[in-house]
Design a protein around this nucleic acid. Structure first.
Lengths: 236, 236
DNA sequence: CCTGCAATTTGCGATAGCGCAAAACCGGCC
DNA sequence: GGCCGGTTTTGCGCTATCGCAAATTGCAGG
């Protein structure tokens, strides 16, 4: 198993307040695995045998209903943890994780968690913070779904993706991983058709440029305005 | 300040793995306060100076948009914590908490949290579990809002309330605190009008009995069936 | 017991967005 | 270079649900 360089991860919020040699000890329990694009890392309902830290790439976490519909819970960016089922007291994964790009992941066995947090209490505190932040985001998302129309929700979703995983271009920001209309629909609670229509509209106004699984925000500021427009703040 | 009896709270998940005398030490830092029905405990955006544990009564946590619309984040039942802004790294409350019934609450100063989790790491671990559970619930709610119609969402919401705060009756289950059509609308992402129409329909089928801020599920099992009905699983 | 307010009910027109279907498109692979 | 499959676009009718308005009801206080 390849050694993981502590310097690559030492600065992550997860390890705040953890001494360098402690970090070494923690990393010694992990292994590093590469997942090619479009491979599953774990499946919803499977036994939660591991938890993960994304080093490179991008991972989509999605939840599936009994009837087969899916929603995207979130996109995981490098440096973030995922699959923390055990930390929250679950024995099975509540969602499916799939690499949307070639990705590299650190993997710990679930069984290591209790020992790790006992030896390094900051881990629990730090994890609590990130889980808490995710809870906030979920509430925000619920608020948006309850009070905004589809166009605003899509605008917000794209702006968040741009902030989290945007690549600055000469002119605009590009979402730095493959993402389809369907994915955006599953993030915002709508259909790929409606997403397509709205992006087409934006494209003809020069707000975005997009294609197959690719989106560039050409006028981020104007999209912010769009995102904040209320149902009645009269359009042209 | 009145002494808090440890026996009242010792069994709570929050204090799992905490020794009795440690619990005593923890409680010594808290004070107990009574909030009459319909009084605010804290306001969204206010400085998070305290965190809370509900002893008696019921508390509604709600988020308000800039434009004044509200959603109900959750109802807090006795034994649950709320207002944990600091545990998740926020300095202001992300929602407003209001007592919907006469309520009694334990209050710790936010400043005590870092010290408490350092001395009693189980607190952090336990809190992580409950916050994680709430995250799951939020995802479930997002899934429902994305994939189900209003009637199913209302059914699920009422069933959850019944499970959390239901009072068993000779025949049926009563939601054990005052809750309006508007509240249910704000939990499910719809309007009070639509909630009213749907409850009226259920009432005429004998599924529920309801009135001013009061709901009794007369046929919980049939409501479960309703909740699981897919858009096309033909009605009668 | 009466009064007033807040909660609830209900009708009705308006519409955002869905669902289905078909066509166009785009890239990667052989 | 051409073919195939997944993605995207777009048209069109439909409907669940909203939004507004008005009537009704039930509780709480005086």
């Amino acid at each position: 198993m390849a050694k993981v360089d502590t310097s690559l991860v030492a600065h992550l919020p997860l390890f705040a307040g953890v001494a360098p040699d402690a970090l070494d000890e923690i990393l010694r329990e992990a292994r590093s695995v590469r997942y090619p694009k479009n491979t599953a890392i774990f499946e919803q309902g499977a036994d939660a045998q591991s938890f993960f830290l994304l080093l490179h790439g991008h991972v989509r976490a999605a939840k599936t209903t009994p009837t087969g519909e899916q929603i995207v819970v979130r996109y995981v960016a490098p440096g973030e943890t995922f699959g923390l089922a055990m930390a929250i007291g679950a024995t099975r994964y509540p969602a499916t994780a799939m690499a949307v790009d070639d990705s590299v992941v650190l993997i710990w066995p679930t069984s290591a968690w209790p020992r790790l947090i006992e030896r390094f209490p900051s881990l629990a505190a730090n994890t609590l913070q990130t889980v808490g932040a995710r809870l906030q985001e979920s509430h925000t998302r619920i608020l948006e779904m309850s009070t905004q129309q589809v166009e605003q929700r899509i605008a917000h979703a794209l702006l968040r993706l741009a902030k989290q995983s945007g690549k600055k271009l000469d002119q605009g920001i590009e979402i730095d991983f493959p993402i389809s209309r369907q994915d955006i629909a599953q993030m915002t609670g709508t259909t790929l058709h409606t997403v397509s229509r709205i992006l087409s509209g934006w494209e003809s106004q020069g707000l975005v440029e997009s294609g197959r699984q690719r989106i560039i925000l050409r006028e981020p500021h104007k999209i912010v305005v769009l995102a904040e427009r209320t149902p009645d703040s009269g359009a042209a």
